[in-house]
Design a binder for these strands. Structure first.
Lengths: 244, 244, 244, 244
DNA sequence: GTGGTCTAGACCACA
DNA sequence: GTGGTCTAGACCACT
């Protein structure tokens, strides 16, 4: 697709700090860190990512400039994750200009997450079920709370729990490549969409429940179909929103 | 899966010449270049890959040391692709030690190539069909020739045509992420397996024909099923060979 | 003046790369390097400034961002000094808003350069005279050339030679503090003025000649008076220009 | 002078606590604090100097080690300024080894303070005169008291008043650069000389009176000459003392 | 041989 | 114990 007729495409050496940046963005976008959380310290990040502090700093500097994190100095300081400043109007405009990309991203999600769901149904262990059920409960509670308080559930909290569930399913499928593909697919779709779904998918959890039930019953076909339906629901919601 | 609980995994910066090396290996492995062929000149490669000649030289030097290419100097010289020296026994030993990896790779192929086949059936255009049919014919001819001459079809030629067909299907699916995933999946599986299939899959083309027919008939379910069957056949063949 | 009643004022730790930046700006502004010149290499600069390359790079990065230098990579590369983009109108506007600062800067120049000229007259050695005379000749030649060719002498070339002469006088005064003061004074005045004087002070060299003659004759009073007159001429020229 | 031919000299980054140390030494040396006085609290100093307490502590620790201040703990404690333990013999030896530096420092003082005095004569306002006259009176009284009591006027008190007068003149000159230069010049000369002048310049005030008179009469030439004479007197006194 | 990047370690200022 | 900065040295890619 991107290769020349000769099968060689330009290589681009990626600086270490860009790789680190990717990692950090990704872990924030998939909700591993929520606003207000403190990232690990520079030294820890360097350790985890097996790079030098210099490289971590380069990435951090960019995130700070973007306003994604706040740097606090001194003892007790650190890097504080900031809420991303989503801009619905802007997002909508961008997505409208990229209809095809959105469609492709969803198609891809349907494929890899559907397959993951099927495999999860076939391979899930008790521990997987327990984990997924717990995530379901957390989300239920969070949604409930957000309704009662009349305060919409925070977008990022939703994102975090949603991602956790989908990635949990992918993990239960026990195929590393597939897991990576799911992560990748979510990432591709998620980035500009965060603003939208926090307010729209109040009933997302019902679908999650269906998926979990199918996985529990070890019915691969059903698990796949349910997951596909869930993702296509999301797609419809998004497209309706884009039409408005 | 490979990520820590915190979603961060070590980054590894890849030297430009390694990326180039990857590209070149890949294009030789997928048969873009056959033994005896001359690679583009250093300058051309540098241009195509958008790196400096230094980097190309570094990659070339490694390939030469490995015996994958022969460097001929002077006028009329260049880089001549050598036949890879596959070692069946070694390959078999390695794959036996990595049963799980092999299984995962095939599972992943089934998923992404199956999906690609389905989408291709739904979205294929006339030009796609023409292209795929041509590839089919070429392979037919090549196989026939190789039988008549009683010389086994050259491994790399088979590889080249096989890859071209599968990637052609993926291209017809018109989803960039999926195409990349297919490429990635083939790459994961292909590398050590080249030695095996040149001699075993004499009837591979029948399956290809079935896939193409399904795609042509725009029957998504059938296309998916046929592709899955084809890949699972390959899997069986490989596993039988590993048992021996 | 700037101290509190208690004699303590806030301290500001100056980062090494800022100090380096100052040094480099200063040496470019006083014409040590002209547009098109290549700065010493990173490694040499680090050596000369006795800092690490990292620090040099930090300063260089800022200069590059400002467009003051151009970075060329590879063998034969380096940092190429760019012509500063003076903007007469802008300069005039700024200077009009800072009349007092301009007056103070000239007053200060008159004091320190006048004193330097006097001391130079009293202390000059043969070598000093030779050096100053040579600078005079160079400037003469440069001015002449610029007239004959009908191309105005390049601003920076003028700056360079002018600075060299004045600093040469200060050096002949043999008082380190005074030399620093002269450098400082010129720096304070010079920065935004470069654009103006290249075209206006065509006869600057006559004054320089007078100063040199007074120094040569060891007449301190005359040397001081001549230098003061020269600087006040410049001041008048500038103020006339500001009036326009 | 100190620059290489290329106009770049080594940079030295100065630690914040050294800057603080400088400030504190300076304010004690110019008599802002007299022996027995209590410095502001650590917190206040940190505030005034806009650094953290850590830095203040580092500076304080050094001053304590040198015996310049006494640290008293607990309620009513604080940092108590101690009388500097000047050592005439030592000072004399050091200055003899640095004859040239002393000469340069005085030359520089003559230049900048002479010019400051001239400008002050030309620009002084009534308030300036009042301030200077008051300082004169204070010094008169202090000197008188010290004679009557047969106790030599405390060195630091002299220093304080002397500095105040000279800086007052510089302030009246209304040129910030020049004021800084005067401060700088005094600082360069003052540091090692404190021990000497407390006992020697009993008649310093007469000169101050002359300077003030000249400034008052708006006679720039006279004001400059008087100040120069005063400084050169001091120089003579010092040189005589060094000869002994 | 140039600039570009990274590493490992250190010291500092901050809170 | 945190981030901020610097050092010294290395390897790499570029031209």
């Amino acid at each position: 697709m991107t290769t020349s007729s000769i099968g060689l495409k330009p290589v681009r050496q990626i600086a270490a700090h860009e790789l680190v940046l990717d990692q950090m963005r990704r872990s924030m976008e998939t909700g591993q860190f929520s606003p207000g959380d403190r990232l690990p310290s520079e030294r820890e990040l360097a350790e985890i990512l097996s790079v030098s502090r210099t490289v971590v700093r380069a990435a951090i500097a960019i995130l700070e400039r973007e306003g994604r994190i706040l740097v606090r100095r001194g003892r007790g300081g650190g890097f504080i994750v900031q809420a991303p400043t989503y801009n619905s109007t802007e997002t909508r405009r961008m997505m409208r200009q990229n209809r095809e990309g959105v469609r492709d991203a969803f198609d891809y999600r349907v494929i890899v997450e559907g397959a993951a769901s099927r495999l999860a149904a076939e391979r899930r262990r008790t521990a997987d079920l327990a984990e997924l059920r717990e995530l379901l409960t957390s989300m239920e509670a969070a949604l409930l709370a957000s309704f009662e308080e009349q305060t919409p559930m925070k977008v990022v909290e939703f994102q975090r729990l949603d991602s956790a569930f989908h990635l949990g399913v992918a993990r239960a499928a026990r195929n590393p490549s597939l897991y990576d593909a799911v992560e990748d697919a979510r990432r591709k779709m998620w980035l500009p969409v965060g603003s939208v779904f926090g307010r729209l998918e109040k009933n997302a959890n019902d679908r999650h429940g269906d998926v979990l039930a199918a996985i529990e019953s070890q019915n691969g076909d059903l698990a796949e179909a349910t997951m596909e339906a869930h993702i296509n629901d999301t797609r419809s919601t998004l497209e309706a929103w884009l039409q408005r």
